[in-house]
Design a protein around this nucleic acid. Sequence first.
DNA 1: CCAAAAGTGTTCGCTCTACACCCATGT
DNA 2: ACATGGGTGTAGAGCGAACACTTTTGG
Lengths: 233, 233
Amino acid sequence: MLKYSKQTRLLLAVDCIIFGFDGEVLKLLLIKRGFQPEKGNWSLMGGFVQADESLDQSANRILKQLTGLEGVYLEQLYTYGDPQRDPMERTVSVAYFALIDIQKYQTQISSDYQAEWFQLKRTPKLIFDQQEMLDQARKRIRYKAAMHPILFELLPTKFTIPQLQTLYECVFNTTIDKRNFSKRVLATGLLIKLADKDKAGSKRGAYYYQLNMQNYYAKFQAFMNFIPNPDTL
Amino acid sequence: MLKYSKQTRLLLAVDCIIFGFDGEVLKLLLIKRGFQPEKGNWSLMGGFVQADESLDQSANRILKQLTGLEGVYLEQLYTYGDPQRDPMERTVSVAYFALIDIQKYQTQISSDYQAEWFQLKRTPKLIFDQQEMLDQARKRIRYKAAMHPILFELLPTKFTIPQLQTLYECVFNTTIDKRNFSKRVLATGLLIKLADKDKAGSKRGAYYYQLNMQNYYAKFQAFMNFIPNPDTL
DNA sequence: CCAAAAGTGTTCGCTCTACACCCATGT
DNA sequence: ACATGGGTGTAGAGCGAACACTTTTGG
């Protein structure tokens, strides 16, 4: 087979920015890097793209290696290609972010990597340009969550409205009036009220809800305030 | 220097989706591909990332090669890495989209590439996965233009409100009431009314406006309808 | 019985939308 | 004089924001 001769070939990596929510604060899953350079320092989970896999496959493989999870919400964020970003050898990195239900995270698998959850407000120094990746991931999540219901990916199947509100307050670093909040989320038609309650957070207990998946997929694309009647492409 | 041995290295390309607006319709700048495979077929302008350049530098270089323009609005869109996307050899491509003032496009430079502007509604078949890139670029532009004033990048320094409205109508494929439109854009405080008029479009003539750059940069980040008082990160 | 969190409705202001007429001028 | 596109104001509806009290129950 003919090739594109004389062109530079380079290393391509995937790094995963893995977010979780424990009911109180947003968290980030980091590992201790196992090889040089920066061996032993806190890092995003990553790996090199293999010859026969797509970028999405690569990201899913890397995520599963660390967490044991499949079918997770995973979205390509941005590609970082500064020639100096890795001092060892030029490596271009495609960053993905993942939103996972922290309760599903399987500890035993991660022990290989000495992984730990960090509060987003107390993350350690990261290697290379990974702090930039993290900042951009947070921006993207806000941007997207402002119009699309992605934050449900961080919650268990059954969740309460106060939990959901805390999550939004974390992500946007603000406080929201609970009456307005519950009106709004209920008005979307995305939630189904269940019969039982979560008694962990209070004596009275808060009703559990789950997603109405039909409406969820149907409304996922609904945004566009500025322009009346656009076609959706 | 130590290296990451045993890892696959691969080709990395940048492809540019170049949009322009002629006052009537949105257009896309394509070239005739100059080498195999798919030689002679319509393609986005692209090139390989060189050993010593960042991705942004690469995209700017490629855009300048074709159009002669620098300082253009250029944004990384997405990275495409299916192992089969280029039949010759595995090539991962980082797509960028550009918004240019079509009047500034310099014909003589592009003659090397047999470039042509196509109406967005009448684009030819594109090579590889470039149709997907184009579709995604259009989506991104809508998404972003719904909240950020990026479409001004497609207009000359001096433009009229009817021109601006036509542009929005093209991008969102809809029609907008002109009274409401002009109220809205004027309310942003982004426009400065000039003394002279454009007499090309009508006998009466339409006032020229230009961007108020202070307000432009200040308001560029203003969106976020869903959440009150977020901090902007 | 008291503390702590859950749940719920109304009012007000503002923004978005719908809608129609006059203006300027080149032919 | 008329045809063409430019420019402007208002009224009504719907949405988002502010705001306080009652309920439940474990301790």
